[in-house]
């Protein structure tokens, strides 16, 4: 009787149709705009085909943005996974059930915050004169000034630290929950063989969790693409172009500096192609 029902059709078709329209219309339109020369200030436009894309590859600021985006992805994904696995294992090892619940609750808080809030919280904290995070430095050095957000060498890492603060702590909770789902026998067996604690995790538990940990990393790679809010609030891509990621550059080309919507859209289309291809391939491999 389940088979005959009209339910799957009535429940799925309208929703999927709406999702398809909502996603395909902007996607296709982004490509159309990228092939034109629209600007915000004027209404007329003509077709320029691939010249926007050709210009991009000669644009050194674009190439810089690609490089910054790649750095951002690598730094935030790696740091998040290291923090998550480290803290997850530590909670598993030394915290009892009640303490675990307590830490889990604390560690979920940062990720719930709007990125704009998190960015502000840390922008205040990193303030060279009045910030709470730079206070220890002022205290130790007797009032020297440390301004992580305005130095090209440190700005990206200072912003990335906020991302890791949000996601690393949250993923630590998930790593702990994953460890808790493991059967105890292999751990007991390793312990009987006099394996050290870190050895148990390095050679037994973490390899057992390889698949979910890779999925977790995959999720983080996707979420790391959404760096715009943090960077917009904390540095605006500065100092100079040190933290200008692709979405930041596309935004400033399209809206702040010149209103070159088509040029910005060409950038967005390249990002879209790159991420869709990369993640589709990764996803198929993760699933396989």
């Amino acid at each position: 009787m389940r088979r005959r029902s009209s339910l799957p059709v009535t429940f799925l078709v309208p929703t999927l149709a709406i999702l398809l329209v909502l996603s395909m219309v902007p996607t296709l339109y982004a490509i159309v705009i990228a092939l034109q020369n629209r600007e915000l200030s004027t209404t007329g436009y003509s077709w320029v085909w691939f010249s926007n894309f050709a210009d991009l590859f000669l644009d050194r600021r674009f190439l810089n943005a690609v490089w910054v985006s790649v750095k951002w992805e690598v730094v935030t994904v790696v740091a998040t996974m290291v923090v998550a696995i480290g803290l997850g294992v530590l909670m598993f090892e030394v915290a009892g059930p009640r303490l675990r619940n307590f830490y889990c609750l604390l560690f979920i808080i940062p990720v719930l915050l709007p990125r704009v809030s998190a960015a502000f919280v840390w922008k205040f904290a990193y303030h060279p004169l009045y910030g709470i995070a730079t206070y220890p430095y002022r205290l130790i050095t007797g009032g020297l000034i440390f301004d992580p957000l305005s130095k090209p060498a440190t700005a990206l890492f200072a912003v990335a630290s906020v991302d890791v603060w949000q996601w690393g702590l949250f993923f630590a909770v998930i790593v702990l929950k994953l460890l808790e789902t493991l059967p105890p026998q292999p751990i007991e067996a390793a312990r009987l063989d006099h394996a050290k604690r870190w050895q148990i995790h390095a050679y037994v538990t973490l390899p057992m969790l390889k698949a979910p940990l890779i999925s977790l990393m995959f999720v983080k790679m996707i979420e790391s693409l959404r760096s715009f809010d943090l960077i917009y609030v904390m540095t605006r891509g500065g100092p100079g172009v040190a933290t200008e990621t692709l979405d930041m550059y596309a935004f400033s080309q399209g809206f702040i500096e010149s209103g070159k919507v088509s040029y910005a859209s060409a950038m967005a289309v390249l990002m879209m192609i790159a991420t869709v291809i990369t993640f589709t391939m990764l996803w198929k491999r993760v699933q396989a």
Partner: peptide, 19 residues
């Protein structure tokens, strides 16, 4: 459904603004 999450927000926002 998952792949919708791959779309960079800028890539959705720019055309939608024009639309």
């Amino acid at each position: 459904v998952l792949s919708l999450r791959f779309l960079p927000p800028v890539a959705v926002a720019i055309p939608l603004m024009v639309i």
